[in-house]
Design a binder for these strands. Structure first.
Lengths: 163, 163
DNA sequence: CTTGTATAGTTAGGGTCCTAACCAAATTGC
DNA sequence: GCAATTTGGTTAGGACCCTAACTATACAAG
């Protein structure tokens, strides 16, 4: 996780625009600020969850399993989380050790295992989720309904370029 | 770096709002999308720079040193980058080994060293920056001037809560 | 049936970043 | 001037995530 504490200010970008005239300075401003904000948000999530004794990746595993009660394969988790199966393999090993998840043989494929939430996993998630979401929601308290809708619209446009 | 490939959809959040009525669902949507977009942007920067043989953290060191020609201390770099001095110490060691930066004694404090760009460092940065900024700018091509201004305004409001 | 390829999962090794402990120089307070 | 604290920097060890190589099962084609 990397963080842009010191975004180039308007003057710097201005000067840069002169050196490279083909450059789109206003675009840069927007993108850099977006990146910075995203990083800060991830950090906010991480810090809050850490206080609940949960790493961000473990939290995501819990959320995804709660949303897929029938169970998920490791590969499925990896795709949904945007990490490699190696990473999932590791985090699942730890979570199984801590009894947060259960795994059973997948009847449709003997190579695969179906991972599900344990009772402890469910309980932990229920304990953590409300606080987590409250912390996140607090961040956009300053925006009214119209502004939130407009922000979502603009983010969707940008997001389409990143697919 | 972690990534939310699978954001909860409107229905999921809806259901969640029923279980926890005090929850601000529209706020959640905005925040999660912002976090996701920020992550994607960081990944975009990283991938592009990697192809130029530069890690993101090395890139930031180069940019910060270019912006502070008189030199920076390791601690100053750490603050501007949002990482610890331990991390800076490590990356500077590697960059000095590769002759991208120079360090000289700080006349005002014999514990500190002033780090500056070497000629190779400058050359590398100049070679990499235009492409880097082009890639970033491409992301917001879909927004016109008014939309960019509005997006910046909204992001500033959100950012104030995270400051 | 057998050979080739794709897929589920694990393991080893490396990069990045953190905290904690440490050293040395600077600063502060008596 | 000297003890206590602060500050600049390094090192060790751990967390998280990656790629690459491996095992084992599934599947597809001849």
């Amino acid at each position: 996780m990397f963080d842009l504490r010191d975004l180039p200010d308007a003057t710097t970008l201005e000067g840069f625009g002169k050196r490279f005239p083909e450059l789109d300075v206003s675009a840069l401003q927007v993108v850099l600020r977006l990146a910075r904000l995203g990083e800060d948000l991830v950090r906010l999530m991480q810090d809050g969850l850490m206080r609940d004794g949960l790493s961000l990746r473990r939290f995501f595993v819990l959320v995804l399993l709660a949303r897929n009660a029938e169970g998920l394969r490791a590969v499925g988790l990896a795709k949904k989380m945007g990490v490699t199966k190696a990473t999932v393999s590791e985090v699942l090993a730890g979570m199984a050790r801590d009894k947060l998840v259960l795994s059973s043989a997948d009847p449709e494929d003997s190579r695969a295992q179906l991972v599900t939430l344990s009772e402890q996993g469910k309980a932990l998630l229920d304990a953590v989720l409300p606080g987590h979401y409250q912390r996140l929601a607090g961040v956009v308290e300053g925006l009214d309904g119209d502004e939130r809708a407009e922000l979502l619209r603009l983010l969707a446009i940008v997001g389409n370029r990143l697919g």
